[in-house]
Simulated scan of single mutants.
Amino acid sequence: MPTVAILTALSLEYEAVLAHLTDVEKLTEPRYGTKAKRGRLPGTPWRVALVDMGEGTLTAAAITTHVLSWLDPEAVLLVGVAGGLKDDIEIGDVVVATKVYAIHGGKQTPDGFLARPEAWRASYRLMEAAKEALRGRAHFKPIAVGDVVLADADSELAQRIRTSFNDAVAIEMESSGVAHAVHLAGEAGALIIRGISDKADADKSRADAGGSQPQAAANAARAAVAVLRELEPKPTAPQPRDSDPREGPFRSSTDAPTYGGDHIDFRGSTFPGPFTAKSVGQPPHGDGQ
């Protein structure tokens, strides 16, 4: 079965996704010891490899790289919670990131901070599946990412985001690391799905204490499942019948040269010493010498 990797940063996000899987097995990456649980997603052709990678962009990039080389997933989904940045983004809403901004790149000058952001776009294939699965049930907007918990809507950072990343509707701490690692690998696509657990303001602690994080994580997990129910695995390239690997993937054995008489085909053969061919049951040639 084809594999999708789902990454989370918090245990409550991990548990929200795990609740949707069946036939779960434990996996350990042999070199670095990265742990995963892999299970089936009922009603889909997918196996899901679930990894609790921890918080922060650097950790996210490193663990994503491990997962890509270890499990070779067709797609990588980052599923979890985020803080909302817009008045029309409510606690409990789901945001699917069309674009991921790394907000801390820039130049500090006497005239202020000049943003020099990096940005990664979502996989077109995954975004098409998400739009079909979540139409009318999620916001498809950019998000901002930095190694910071934003809990002050009046701070200098909040103002900078409003000025330099005005279309970002949420902020969190891992997506840029995941998106960059997937971009460098060049095979799997990435999709970021976030449930809004607070408004990135002074009321963040109150919202968290009221149970907003588990609810937001559950909403994001349900959205991820809906996307995977819509997403189809990539088609497998057909292999030629009776192909000879020494002749290339598209050469049939019927195209190979044929030999008769006393010719012997030594292609691909190795011999530890001298080789002597002897005719068995055939009359000698000439005078028998």
Rank of each mutant, 00 (worst) to 15 (best):
T34L: 13
A9I: 07
L18A: 15
F266V: 15
G43W: 01
T57E: 03
D152Y: 11
D88Q: 11
A153N: 06
L27M: 08
T8Y: 02
E132V: 11
P284R: 13
A185E: 14
V148C: 10
L7K: 12
L78I: 02
K99P: 01
E232S: 15
A209P: 03
G136V: 08
D87P: 11
A216Q: 07
V182L: 02
P240M: 15
P245W: 04
R206C: 00
F266T: 15
G83P: 09
G281A: 13
L77A: 05
G286C: 09
Q159G: 07
L184F: 12
T34K: 10
G261A: 11
D287I: 07
I192T: 12
P274W: 03
E128L: 11
A97K: 13
G177S: 12
H263G: 06
I161V: 10
D87S: 15
R31Q: 14
S11L: 12
V96L: 01
L228A: 13
S279V: 08
P142Q: 01
I63W: 01
A237V: 13
A49F: 05
E232Y: 01
V178H: 03
A179N: 06
D198Y: 06
L71I: 12
A151D: 14
R47P: 00
R162M: 00
K26E: 14
V79A: 08
A217N: 12
F165L: 02
D152T: 09
G39V: 10
I196N: 04
V48D: 02
Q239F: 04
V24I: 12
G146S: 12
S175I: 06
H263L: 13
T163E: 04
S155G: 10
P2A: 01
S175K: 06
A151C: 03
I89Y: 03
L50V: 11
P2H: 02
G136F: 07
A158P: 06
Q289P: 00
S279A: 14
I91V: 15
D201I: 01
A168R: 00
G54A: 12
D23V: 04
R194Q: 10
Q282G: 07
L184P: 02
R206P: 00
A218K: 12
E118Y: 06
V67F: 08
H139Q: 05
G92I: 11
G106V: 03
I143G: 12
G268D: 06
S155Y: 11
S164Q: 05
A119Y: 08
A158L: 08
A49D: 12
F271M: 11
Y101N: 00
P272D: 14
A62G: 00
L71F: 03
S11C: 03
G106H: 02
H263T: 14
D23Y: 03
H285F: 10
I171C: 09
G248S: 07
S11I: 06
V76L: 06
K26P: 04
L41Y: 03
D147A: 08
D88T: 08
H263P: 00
S279E: 10
A153F: 04
Q282K: 15
T44L: 09
S269Q: 14
H139P: 04
V79G: 07
H180P: 00
W46K: 04
A16N: 02
H180M: 05
A223R: 07
H285Q: 13
A115N: 02
D287Y: 08
G54L: 09
L77V: 05
K99D: 05
T276S: 13
A133K: 06
I264A: 14
S212P: 01
D154Y: 13
A221V: 09
